[in-house]
């Protein structure tokens, strides 16, 4: 049950979300205002903006929910797809598909390649962290993730080096964290797995609550930890991979949103998961608006905005004393 204060915060959040979505449809490189639907240009503009807003919402929801799940399953408050290097792994997979030129014909190949590479990265990171003394230790997992992420970034540079001029441009623009997703086809191909993953996670919100007590206690509470934990990690990876395939690397969205929600509403995943979906989506749409309006007529990629706000937040979490 929510307290009075939480109900106020929730109501303010709903009002804020409506305002942000309304603002998002009116903001763009073509100026401020609702596009004129009577003209072809206006309709095209609305189509572009709608695609961008939905992409922003889906990507933000996916990254935020993935972060929330990873933090619980790995019992690590700093766990997040970007920091763990999962996003970098996914980006290598996506870049390879982009470099082959197959993405234009078969958009679903982008999330597929992204997911395979992201899964391989997760397995690699977990096994290295385990050898380094246990994946439950925050430092081990974070350090392994950061180093693996750096190595994968170099692999990405290598792919860019050997790619053709046109591919280099599209990979670079996509890499910066760009919400102007190529097409509705790609958006659909990536959104369906994300929705399925969210449904799976919502069905396991009680399991995630039990996992807050650690793997052994969760086992004692009736969780089949041997199968459920890997599946939860696969779902978080799938969501990250689909988000990366659409919008490139957007860091820290999976860290900021779940932490703020935990602080305000506690860690009951029955509320935290849907909260992460909605707040994560709104957060990224708001960051995108900021990127579009702060230095007109230039557009700052949304990945830059989240990194600028998320980096200091990460450092704050890293240095703050345990209460």
């Amino acid at each position: 049950m929510m307290t009075k204060r939480q109900i106020y915060i929730f109501s303010a959040g709903v009002v804020g979300a409506c305002l942000i979505l309304g603002l998002a449809i009116m903001c763009g490189a073509a100026g401020f205002g609702i596009p004129d639907l009577s003209s072809r240009t206006g309709r095209a503009l609305l189509n572009l903006r709608a695609c961008r807003i939905i992409t922003g919402f889906v990507v933000g929801a996916a990254l935020s929910t993935a972060g929330c799940v990873l933090q619980t399953v790995l019992r690590n408050p700093l766990a997040e797809p970007y920091i763990l290097g999962v996003s970098s792994g996914a980006s290598v997979g996506t870049a390879i598909i982009m470099a082959t030129g197959l993405a234009a014909t078969y958009p679903f190949l982008l999330p597929t390649g992204s997911f395979i590479a992201a899964m391989l990265t997760v397995v690699l990171i977990m096994s290295i962290a385990q050898r380094a003394g246990g994946s439950h230790m925050p430092q081990n997992l974070i350090l392994t993730g950061v180093v693996t992420g750096s190595i994968l970034s170099s692999v990405l540079m290598l792919i860019i080096t050997f790619a053709g001029t046109h591919t280099v441009r599209s990979i670079t623009w996509w890499l910066l964290g760009n919400l102007q997703c190529g097409s509705w086809e790609l958006l659909t191909a990536c959104t369906i797995p994300i929705i399925l993953a969210v449904i799976y996670l919502l069905a396991h919100s009680n399991t995630l609550n039990a996992l807050l007590l650690g793997h052994e206690n969760a086992h004692n509470l009736g969780v089949n930890t041997n199968t459920t934990i890997p599946l939860l990690i696969v779902m978080a990876t799938l969501m990250t991979a689909c988000a990366v395939a659409m919008s490139g690397i957007i860091g820290f969205a999976g860290l900021i949103v779940p932490h703020i929600l935990r602080r305000q509403f506690g860690s009951n995943h029955r509320f935290l998961l849907p909260g992460s979906v909605i707040a994560g989506g709104i957060f990224l749409v708001a960051c995108d608006i900021l990127g579009r309006v702060c230095i007109p007529p230039h557009e700052i990629p949304v990945g830059v905005i989240t990194a600028v706000s998320g980096g200091p937040f990460f450092l704050y979490l890293l240095t703050r004393k345990q209460r």
């Binding site: 609550n209 807050l212 007590l213 206690n217 935990r262 009951n268």
Partner: peptide, 10 residues
């Protein structure tokens, strides 16, 4: 269990 960790936000 022997001990319940205090940092669980529940």
């Amino acid at each position: 269990p022997q001990e319940i960790p205090s940092e669980i936000p529940l």
